[in-house]
Design a protein around this nucleic acid. Structure first.
Lengths: 179, 179
DNA sequence: GCTGAAAGCAAAGAATA
DNA sequence: TATTCTTTGCTTTCAGC
């Protein structure tokens, strides 16, 4: 069903700007990617073939990275969510640290600006498993400290939204930046 | 294509434990939810109808929350990712704070344990838009401080993985917990 | 849970505006 | 460029085992 025929393309084409119809298509597909192209076109104000053609283009251009089933973490026994700040000696992004990507508990790895070097999002079965994961992280050369923020409740968690807030009326008390 | 016929069920059934075949199905669908049931069954070692039946069950039970298109943030002009720690006076989870859910820039809202109350994951077009969002957050009654961690690079970002690390061989220097 | 048949939908093309 | 129509092929779906 997918066109994974060529492994040649560098997977990111000269990304043209998305128009309003593309945004509407993305909005529907982010919400529910199981709709038929007929319904997709209907919801986005396009014919089925037009919708299909545009979605293929969105996939080829990389605007749609993938279509994925979103799993309930509790169903796969990972009820514990934590954000781990990792402080390192020297530059944080080492191959050794990246090796933790292989653990399915690790969902995100970012380097960040602020009072820490790296930021991880991890999901584990319980505090014991989190402790084990932290132990592994501490074994990585260069890792100095970690600070973990364990999620007590999650009130919102959703994929990247295509919509953008149109205008931010700057608070009146805020000075105007020159850039 | 979807069975959203009844709005009666509380959307979380007595979740039975997933077996190995369910895990395999989830593994395939997290990676690519566009596969046909024929191919899905093949990859998971099941016939197409069996795969279909199990996937329907996984959807009904809530183990599969939704099927979603994963969008490239850059394609929708949100290249700037930030994690915002919000400190509040009193209890953080107020309806006023939750109101920021309506901004598509806000992807996650968690209450956390640690030296902050709430943790947000937000994506904006640029630093100016982030500033505007922070200004909105500061306008929420009870918000005292925010600390933002702007992502410099993202090295890993993926959906909830069905797999679990089997055994964590506890480092030898670590004392055994009684629980 | 597997097999095999019927209905439905998707993918590709041609003609048109 | 988007639409409609058509056709081919595949997928889903439901029967029975």
């Amino acid at each position: 069903m997918d066109e994974e025929t060529d492994g040649i393309r560098p997977s990111r084409l000269p990304t043209r700007e998305l128009d309003a119809a593309d945004r509407r298509l993305l909005g529907v597909l982010v919400d529910d990617a199981t709709v038929s192209y007929a319904e997709l076109g209907e919801r986005a104000g396009l014919s089925a073939p037009a919708a299909h053609e545009r979605v293929k283009r969105l996939r080829r251009s990389g605007a749609i990275r993938q279509t994925s089933a979103i799993i309930d973490p509790k169903a796969v026994r990972k009820p514990l969510l934590a954000f781990v700040h990792v402080d390192t000696r020297g530059w944080g992004k080492t191959p050794e640290l990246m090796a933790i990507s292989k653990y399915p508990e690790v969902e995100e790895i970012h380097s960040v600006a602020g009072d820490t070097c790296m930021l991880l999002k991890v999901r584990t079965e319980d505090t014991r498993a989190l402790e084990g994961l932290l132990a592994r992280i501490y074994e990585v050369p260069g890792v100095v400290t970690t600070r973990s923020y364990v999620a007590l409740s999650t009130y919102l968690e959703r994929p990247v939204q295509p919509g953008a807030t149109k205008e931010w009326p700057a608070p009146r008390h805020m000075a105007q930046p020159i850039y």
